[in-house]
Nucleic acid binder design. Structure first.
Lengths: 144, 144
DNA sequence: CTTATTGTAACTATACTGGTTACAGTTATG
DNA sequence: CATAACTGTAACCAGTATAGTTACAATAAG
């Protein structure tokens, strides 16, 4: 399958918005940078708008902009705004409840899943959109 | 899609092996506890065998057992043995290299991906198969 | 009124996962 | 030795998620 890359695209999108500042960006412009279809972009923007990270406006001269300054946008917020899957999934079928291990393993795995998710959230909490901008700066100057 | 639950199944399988100790377990027996098809189990066992976590033997009275005692089997090892995907995927298409953001974002996302993967590995490093067994014990007694 | 843009539905192509059948190779055991 | 019992693996199917695409209604600027 095409693995879920919405979080990565969301970060890309938000970075563009951060660079452009006050200007409204069109989904078409963003799509050009991400190298995909405008509708794909708008779908992601919809999720980001639900999370109040961006604001979109329809009509001519419409488009999307950040709600908050880049320093105040944390990558955890982005992660939570986007419907990413869990790090690992629990089996679709319930384990055999007649087996002691089958009976007990599910809650253990579920707790483990939550613990890992907290770990990921914690790590993402270390990064803001502003820090992403800095890292891109660094890459550019390092390459130059 | 059916999300990848191989890691969860692997932990379940290894827990069963840990409980049974020296005995060889048949894929059929394991499948009964996990509530799936023996071939699905054998596919996962194959990956665990590649990582030297388990040993399988063909033929009558064949089956699979743990190579190491449960205390020495860490969940990171299991995670690395199983082909799980990354926490989030990078876009399939390369970003537009004519755009400064598009040019710089990819390595930033790649590094972020690695940082998160390290976070997950670190958290999984806190658990051994023995600790999983203990947690199941706890669940059982708590429920009783 | 015309033009530009978002939001969203609908459809397609692709691809991964788990489930299943089938079968060759291997080993214990009578 | 013959048989029965397993593993390993290939092949195929069904279900489903993702991204890409087209189309169009709703909305707003000029």
């Amino acid at each position: 399958m095409a693995a879920n890359s919405q979080f990565a695209m969301a970060v890309h999108i938000l970075t563009l918005l951060a660079v452009k500042g006050e200007t409204n960006l069109k989904s078409d412009t963003i799509a050009h940078s991400v190298n995909t279809n405008p509708v794909v972009i708008r779908r992601i923007l919809g999720q980001l708008a639900n999370a109040r990270l961006v604001e979109s406006h329809t009509g001519a001269a419409g488009g999307t902009r950040l709600v908050l300054p880049p320093e105040k946008v944390c990558l955890v917020d982005v992660y939570k705004a986007i419907s990413c899957g869990e790090v690992f999934a629990l089996p679709a079928k319930q384990a055999n409840q007649d087996c002691p291990v089958g009976r007990g393993i599910e809650s253990v795995l579920c707790n483990l899943q939550k613990a890992i998710d907290r770990s990921v959230a914690e790590k993402l909490g270390e990064f803001s959109l502003a820090s992403v901008l800095e890292m891109i700066e660094f890459e550019s100057t390092a390459a130059a």
